Computed example of a mutant assay.
Amino acid sequence: MTAPLYNAEILRLAASIPRHERLPDPMGSAERRSPICGSRVTVDVDTDADGRIERVGLLVRACALGQASSSLLAANMIGRTPEELAAASDALTAWLAGGEDMPDWPGIAIFTPALSVTGRHASIRLAFEAAAAAAAQARDRARPLAAE
């Protein structure tokens, strides 16, 4: 017997997304949308002087899997670099596609039952893809300031 796709832990995470309000004037912001189901996640970030994520805001309009993924992301991205977020997004994509080991991200194993349900992969990836893009945008905006 396989584990259910929408289990109690997925639903708990979906109902408890931290940092669930957008930032007023973010250094970086990105939205990703799943064309399959219409789920949408927007991630706003501010970084500190070292380029690490300092503040996060999210707007999540997604299914339970997208909400749960957003919850795991938001709970664990403070202090991460844009490069770390890009690597986590890439690792999640590879893992879901079946080509790599599980990503090194707290709690990500909860999505193991979804590995065989490819139609749900896009929703799980949304928050990580948006966070990586928002962090890269913040990094790129900060570079000219650092050069001055």
Rank of each mutant, 00 (worst) to 15 (best):
Met1Pro: 13
Thr2Tyr: 07
Pro4Val: 04
Leu5Thr: 07
Ala8Thr: 10
Arg12Ala: 15
Leu13Ala: 12
Ala14Cys: 13
Pro18Glu: 00
Arg19Leu: 12
Glu21Ile: 14
Pro26Phe: 03
Pro26Gln: 08
Gly28Ala: 03
Gly28His: 00
Gly28Asn: 09
Arg32Asp: 06
Pro35Cys: 11
Cys37Tyr: 06
Gly38Asp: 02
Ser39Leu: 05
Thr42Lys: 08
Thr42Ser: 11
Gly51Glu: 09
Arg52Gln: 13
Ile53Pro: 01
Glu54Gly: 09
Gly57Ala: 06
Gly57Asp: 00
Leu58Ser: 06
Leu58Ile: 01
Leu59Gly: 14
Cys63Gln: 11
Ala64Ile: 06
Gly66Thr: 10
Gln67Lys: 15
Gln67Asp: 04
Ser69His: 09
Ser71Ala: 15
Ile78Pro: 00
Arg80Ile: 04
Arg80Glu: 05
Thr81Lys: 10
Pro82Phe: 12
Glu83Asp: 13
Ala88Gln: 07
Thr93Asp: 15
Gly99Arg: 01
Glu100Asp: 09
Pro103Leu: 09
Pro103Gly: 05
Gly107Pro: 01
Gly107Trp: 10
Pro113Ala: 00
Leu115Pro: 04
Ala122Cys: 08
Ala127Glu: 07
Ala130Val: 09
Ala130Ser: 02
Ala131Gln: 01
Ala131Glu: 00
Ala131Met: 03
Ala134Asp: 02
Ala136Ile: 03
Ala138Gly: 06
Arg139Ala: 11
Arg139Tyr: 01
Asp140Tyr: 05
Asp140Asn: 08
Arg143Ser: 03
Leu145Asp: 03
